[in-house]
């Protein structure tokens, strides 16, 4: 093994770095390949997606796939996009409100009787996987007339034990008691403290939980399959699933629809990624 400072070590180090960069670049390209393939396929003519040899750059350029997505007979793409957006944003807002408010209560009202046991109880239910909830929620929605409604997609998952745990941890560490006391002395109401003192401090955690929740809601295929049965209510994952099952629709159009469904998510992620990745790491490692 070469020693520090000798030319042998410098060569060794140099080779190491070049190798490291090469590996990372290769893996990065492999990771991006499916995205690129989606992008390029969305601009290909019907016959060219499976051309031999494979077509890396669409030729001829065929952007009308995107117009055709909007003109499909059996799905209303724009309506579905709006449905997905409305459901995801509302669900996200509800989760953030419920979890931050309850997380604040659990973190800061230390004197309230029953605080510990209620919290342990919430955590305990986290051990039970979502798979046992699906049938009861479906049955409940049938009984309550929730099939084909927005609220059936927005409300049930909003009482999120993981979110409340996360918010309690974050508020416990980052919102200082003297800040709350100072606000109380200034005559701020408890709800006012939540709104004016707690929420601004926990913005990074809200962003992280928000993106996490939004992505989850936006990609929710199983919920849509079970709860949404009419064309007007379809969400994007359901539309893409249905387009794919219809063999009369060229793949280029399906890929254009997929691209339109993926792009907002990637943009949201790029915008909030620092909070998101950090939030995900801290949440996961503590759990």
């Amino acid at each position: 093994m070469a020693r520090r400072g000798t030319s042998g070590f410098r060569v060794y180090r140099y080779v190491n770095r070049v190798l490291g960069h090469a590996v990372l670049m290769l893996v990065a390209l492999l990771f991006l390949l499916p995205f690129y393939w989606m992008l390029s396929s969305a601009f290909k003519e019907p016959g060219h997606i499976f051309a031999a040899p494979p077509q890396w750059i669409p030729s001829p350029w065929h952007p009308s796939n995107f117009r055709d997505v909007l003109d499909l007979a059996n799905v209303d793409f724009i309506r579905s996009f709006v449905n997905s957006l409305f459901i995801s944003v509302s669900h996200c807002g509800l989760v953030l409100f419920l979890c931050s408010l309850a997380g604040f209560a659990f973190a800061k009202y230390r004197d309230a009787p029953g605080r510990q046991s209620l919290f342990v109880f919430v955590l305990g239910t986290m051990m039970i996987p979502g798979s046992v909830l699906i049938i009861p929620i479906y049955v409940m929605m049938v009984k309550l007339g929730g099939i084909d409604t927005y609220w059936a997609m927005i409300v049930p998952g909003a009482a999120n034990a993981f979110g409340i745990y996360w918010m309690r941890e974050y508020i416990g560490e980052n919102v200082h008691d003297d800040l709350l006391e100072a606000a109380r002395i200034d005559g701020c109401s408890e709800l006012g403290i939540y709104w004016h003192v707690v929420l601004p401090v926990i913005r990074p955690a809200l962003a992280a939980l928000g993106v996490f929740t939004f992505i989850f809601a936006w990609n929710n295929l199983m919920g849509s399959l079970i709860l949404l049965h009419t064309k007007e209510m379809y969400t994007l994952p359901l539309v893409i699933y249905l387009l794919n099952g219809d063999s009369s629709i060229p793949y280029g159009i399906v890929m254009a629809a997929s691209l339109l469904a993926t792009a907002p998510l990637i943009l949201a992620f790029l915008f909030f990624q620092r909070d998101f990745v950090e939030g995900m790491t801290s949440g996961a490692l503590k759990a």
Partner: peptide, 27 residues
């Protein structure tokens, strides 16, 4: 004295009871 605590966790617990606790028992 801590009635705010119960007020603040109640929205969560209402939904939690309806869409988590009840399903867990039901299933």
């Amino acid at each position: 004295r801590n009635w705010h605590f119960y007020l603040f966790i109640s929205p969560f617990f209402v939904l939690f009871t309806a869409f988590a606790l009840y399903p867990i028992v039901f299933s």
